[in-house]
Nucleic acid binder design. Structure first.
Length: 441
DNA sequence: GAGTTTGAAACT
DNA sequence: CAGTTTCAAACTC
């Protein structure tokens, strides 16, 4: 695929990041609960579940959360750290959560976020539906009745009214018979992407409307939680809708760190930076483990205080298995020419962009004459000299005139917007044409 | 495997 | 925000 890197490589990728929910953006297709309702874990008593899920080598937050031991420990530490739980958290493997009010404590990374998430979720459900308890199970789905056209893991949320007056929302993840581990293991970088486009189809069963509505409820819960805890997204390294399956379980294979002085509680440590606890590492004096939960919690808070995006992926855009994307912050390489693994862009197999402040960069598209970075920088320079106040005024005048015209013709708002945008496109093309005509003189 | 180089993170 | 220090990974020998 050839073409102007400005129009394709850069703009299209970047717009994908701006619009994470845009059509075609791959999102997690694994067990829905693990991502959108991470505190609700599958029941280990169900024989259909691969034991793999409880002993995943990737050690991602999702997998850590899937461990019964982890749940117990997280519950205990939650008490220890916040002291805000109105009652003892459930420690049953059904992971029920009590309905309660919002918790205003800043959410600690990894361990407690899901408890808090559940609290907010329960608060919402309690208010909206009178639900007082949530349970979840993974069950094998009889192949003949698999409601998922693509064989995914549909979620069947149902609100039950019990005779005891306790309303329960059951989230039932159906595991289609054949591929047990692949279906339930969040670490499997399976090839299936659930796009925003395909999401409704994936969850449609015999009561498609109901399920779609329930899915939106769950999304509302997520938003509700995010509103209550602005840090939530930062501490949810694996739940952003733009995350691919690859991102979900760390695109890199898990490498043991060898930290000696940081206690693995600074971003120097790759495990810590990836939101993972150290496991089978070669580090010394490691505190990035369950035994030092409090200290780890404090370190996480400190990192987030310095940089709220500290635990988010540095690489934006791109799809699993592709090389396109860009480093959100950009690199600062000086001596490597951005052609060694010292360079974060090069290491991520992506080209440097205008975000980078590197010197002597050679990590750009060899196919283009100047390279992406230079092209973008050039465009910026040109636009500075061409985007004079007079030009801006002229463009504004054109757009305004177009809006007035639309109003005069009694166009619909959508049509009016379309007319203005078309005019804006014309203006831009005129400006760009002028810029490059000037270059030839 | 020891020593060097490198650039991100942390600090001032 | 810029300069400096610390740190661990990448690299070289």
């Amino acid at each position: 695929m050839s073409g102007d890197p400005l129009s394709h490589d850069f703009c299209s990728e970047r717009s994908r990041d701006v619009l994470p929910g845009s059509v075609g953006t791959p999102v997690w297709t694994g067990p829905f609960l693990d991502v959108t309702w991470p505190g609700i874990i599958p029941c280990p008593h169900q024989p259909a579940i691969s034991p793999h899920i409880f002993n995943c080598p990737c050690q991602s937050i999702q997998c850590q959360l899937a461990s019964p031991h982890y749940i117990l420990e997280a519950s205990n530490q939650y008490h220890l750290l916040t002291g805000l739980l109105p009652g003892p958290p459930h420690t049953s493997y059904h992971s029920s959560v009590p309905a309660s009010g919002l918790v205003n404590e800043p959410v600690p990374f990894g361990m407690m976020q899901d408890d808090l998430y559940n609290h907010v979720a329960m608060n919402y459900l309690h208010q909206q539906y009178g639900v007082t308890e949530v349970t979840s199970q993974i069950q094998p789905t009889p192949s003949q009745s698999d409601p998922s056209p693509s064989g995914g893991s549909p979620v069947n949320p149902r609100i039950k009214n019990s005779t005891s007056g306790r309303n329960t929302l059951d989230l039932e993840v159906c595991n289609s018979g054949g591929g047990e581990a692949a279906q339930v293991n969040p670490c499997e970088p399976g090839p299936n992407f659930l796009t925003m486009e395909s999401a409704p189809a994936q969850i449609q069963g015999d009561d498609g409307l109901t399920q779609e509505k329930d899915l939106s409820i769950i999304e509302t819960l997520r938003q509700s939680y995010q509103e209550a805890h602005p840090l939530y997204e930062n501490m949810q390294p694996q739940t952003h809708p733009t995350r691919t399956v690859g991102n979900l379980c760390e695109s890199k294979s898990r490498k043991p760190c060898r930290c000696t002085r940081s206690q693995c509680l600074k971003l120097y440590c790759e495990c810590f930076a990836n939101g993972l606890m150290c496991s089978s590492c070669d580090c010394s004096n490691c505190h990035n483990n369950a035994d030092h939960g409090m200290k780890r919690h404090q370190a996480i808070k400190m990192c987030l205080g310095r940089n709220p995006n500290a635990f988010r992926h540095k690489i934006a855009g791109g799809k699993l298995g592709e090389v396109k994307g860009w480093h959100k912050k950009g690199c600062n390489c000086k001596r490597s020419g951005c052609l060694k693994n010292y360079c974060e862009c090069y290491e991520a197999n992506i080209m440097c962009t205008s975000s980078c402040k590197c010197i002597g960069c050679r990590n750009y598209d060899k196919g283009s004459q100047k390279g992406l970075k230079e092209n973008i920088a050039n465009m910026k320079d040109r636009s500075v000299s061409f985007m004079t106040p007079a030009v801006v005024d002229a463009v504004s005048g054109c757009l305004l005139a177009q809006a007035v015209e639309a109003e005069r013709e009694a166009q619909s708002p959508a049509q009016a917007a379309h007319m203005v945008l078309v005019e804006f496109g014309h203006c831009l093309s005129q400006i760009v044409k002028a810029m490059f005509n000037d270059d030839t003189h």
